[in-house]
Amino acid sequence: MNLIELNNISKYFGKTKAIDRVNLTLAPSKIYGLLGRNGAGKTTLLNIITNRIYPDQGIVKIEGKNVVLNDQILRNVFYMTEKNLFHEGYSLKELLYLCKDFYPSADLSYAHTLAAKFRLNLKQKIGGLSMGYLSIFKAIMALCSNAPILILDEPVSGLDANHRELLYKEILEIYAAKAQTIIISTHLIEEIAALLEEVIIIDHGKLLLQESSEMLLQKAWIVTGEISKVRSFAKSMRVLNAKTLGQREEVLLFGLISQKDLIAGKNSGLDFAMASLQKLFIGLTENTEVNHE
């Protein structure tokens, strides 16, 4: 079943095409990573999915229903925005009650537990929070909302390493218990890679790829060796970038390598390593692709 469906979505800001004919389908109960460089259109796309803004073209459906002005459906989605959209004078406690108004099944005692874990005092006003604690509070709201679809836009921005790790664990913990659909948009790819079941990469408003992270990583190889040997091995493959150092070359390849080719390559003196999701992401979005034609 498709939980979220984007059908040919385009969005212009003035003459700039922010989103360019994006088609996407998301299945329930998976953790998705929405990755893209600054300005790639991640937040715009999330705003469209949650009907905060209207696309110029195309339709978004959740559970088969058009999201436009559909309160019923949108109550299934908690969207943690990167910006704070609440009035600064509210205390965190008040905001949690507000959250409960919109998401009646929200679990406020869980919110208090999380706040204690992050050492966040709920009596303070949201306007007085540091950037990191603002992110933490918004994430706590999302996790306690009990909405079946959680959209987290840059959930760890401003968080120190300890708090990031704690948040990743809390996300996995609630996911293990509730199996929500979680969409995480982030710049910190390396850290989050292992959390993701599926990866969506957008670039310049276009969908570059959507694939299970595992499949994706099986296609990402760093091959090093003598220039001529590397080039002859890489001849029929996508070379996302290449670096030469003296007589040696290192290439980032994108594609499956058969066991037979792998053994032959190793025997000819080439070294193979799996590339990280981050390396692959940079290779795919950096325009350094090499054409051997």
Binding site: L172, E173, L195, S213
Partner: peptide, 17 residues
Amino acid sequence: TTELSITLSINPATANK
């Protein structure tokens, strides 16, 4: 699987696999 997933910070599908 759940403990593996949370302790190692990996997706439960990976632990399952």
